[in-house]
Amino acid sequence: MSNQTWRNTINNNPIQQSIRQFLAKFPLKTHRSPYGVRELDDPRLYIWGPGWKSGQETSFDQECVKWQTFLKFSKSDFETKRSNEPLMSPSGKLPFLILTTGDVLVDDSIEKHVTDMYSDNLGRINEQQEADSQSFIALADTKLRNALLYNLWCEPANESITYKKYVGHYAKPLDKLLFQKYKKLAVKELLTRKPVLNKEEIYQEADEALIAISNALGDSKYFFGSSLPTFVDAVVFSYIHVILNIPLNEVQVQSNLIKYSEKIYNEYILSGF
């Protein structure tokens, strides 16, 4: 309090005030900057791209496809930009979303933003289904993700295509350096869930997870018979879409899941671009 009054006395000192008034007259002349303020018209999602197959607007990276799809589900206006540079992201990973306000969102904050603003376009599920949905997401994010990471980063046959997609745009020898760095990160992540990286076991578990997911989906359009897609659909679609498009796929995808992913692709992704 006394500090405040002390400061006020200083600031209201007549000499101080007249100095301030004098300084306010400067600069005497002001140019207008030729550089306009850059503002986004729409939120922008920075992703890895382009996709595995030519003409695909979906990213080759599962995380990017997930958020792309979820934003598409919500029918919110957004544009995607293939930046291929994870250092741009606050989390060090792509994707991230920049809102027109300038806020930068990653992961859960994107989900929160979408569910807060556009919940009308998303399916509604009850508490029980919400719990089930969380377990399917966890299943996909462990078993399917293991298989995907192993396929991309640990299969010698896939090294060249993974290299081309993730680091091919860098100058030599940064490409090799960064490839090793990303590979190390992927292996490190795998080792947090699997003490020993056994190829057969990893693919086997992914096959089992896909069977469970396929059974849960059944013949319905979306999970839990919802008429509109929910977050779990974005997650499952992203894995199946990437698995189906990787040149050297090692896991079995059930026919109902293939149909499901084609439908979502045609209805939400293709129509939107």
Binding site: R38, L40, S83, E85, L87, M88, P90, I98, G102, V104, Y170, A171, K172, L174, L177, L178
Partner: peptide
Amino acid sequence: WRQICNIAKDATLSIRESAGHSL
């Protein structure tokens, strides 16, 4: 080898887009 990184949360868009590696 230059890395532009640790972009501040409230950085200008152009600064964010200039993040990355260059040789």
